[in-house]
Design a protein around this nucleic acid. Sequence first.
DNA 1: TTTTGACTTAAAGCCAACTTCAAGTATTAT
DNA 2: ATAATACTTGAAGTTGGCTTTAAGTCAAAA
Lengths: 130, 130
Amino acid sequence: MRIAEVSEKYDISPDTLRYYEKVGLIPAVNRTGSGIRDYNEMDLKRIEFIKCMRNAGLPIEALTEYISLVLQGDQTIDARKEILKVQRELLVTRMNEMQKTLQILDTKISVYEGTLLKKEKEMVQKDKAF
Amino acid sequence: MRIAEVSEKYDISPDTLRYYEKVGLIPAVNRTGSGIRDYNEMDLKRIEFIKCMRNAGLPIEALTEYISLVLQGDQTIDARKEILKVQRELLVTRMNEMQKTLQILDTKISVYEGTLLKKEKEMVQKDKAF
DNA sequence: TTTTGACTTAAAGCCAACTTCAAGTATTAT
DNA sequence: ATAATACTTGAAGTTGGCTTTAAGTCAAAA
């Protein structure tokens, strides 16, 4: 599969796909005789994985480190596990912060929609900044 | 309260606090006779609100727009509500993506820890990119 | 066969969100 | 009184993550 097709399938620009390969987010993709990238099934799975991780905000650096360990073989399993655990904890922390923010947004929207009880409104007003 | 104290209380650098004021994330803070910022209760609540929103990834631009509407008075309530609703939806979308990623990370960690049943392991291996 | 469009590279540019710097004034501790 | 510390401003610099540009090669359609 050529880069344009992959780009469309995953909604990632060709430039970004080449960039991911250059910085080591995706191992080198096979080329045709004339030097054009020819993505195989494994490459596509890797792109999907990276897209998912990047969407969730995992930094490129942590991912490149993880992938370089994967390519080095089984003696790196402990180090890989550690990276994933650290990133998992960071992710959970961010999700909790977002949950808190979501509640605040929902309360504010309720205030603007006038769908709160009088008592609730008063409580909210006391703590209001904006 | 002076900027250094506020900075410590909320773990936001003085530079960032001044920057937030400059770009309109926080309305102008009162100054002492000699021109030094003197944060009051309302300012602190506003900083807390902004910190929470920024932590959750809401863009500065959306927040400055919202705040400028707040300062313009009650005829902007509908527009404010709309901004909050849009940002709420974006937040929920991001949280869902993070939830998906969290599950993938947990599965991978389980694989590395060998805490999966044989059947589960096989299923996971089939879909493995890294 | 020629032109159109996709591909290649390395390097420079861009954007959001700070962060640091330079140059100066004010306040606090000794 | 003087030195150290905290404050001020505007502007330049940094970081992460792409994105665009320049200059060129290659291949499929008209």
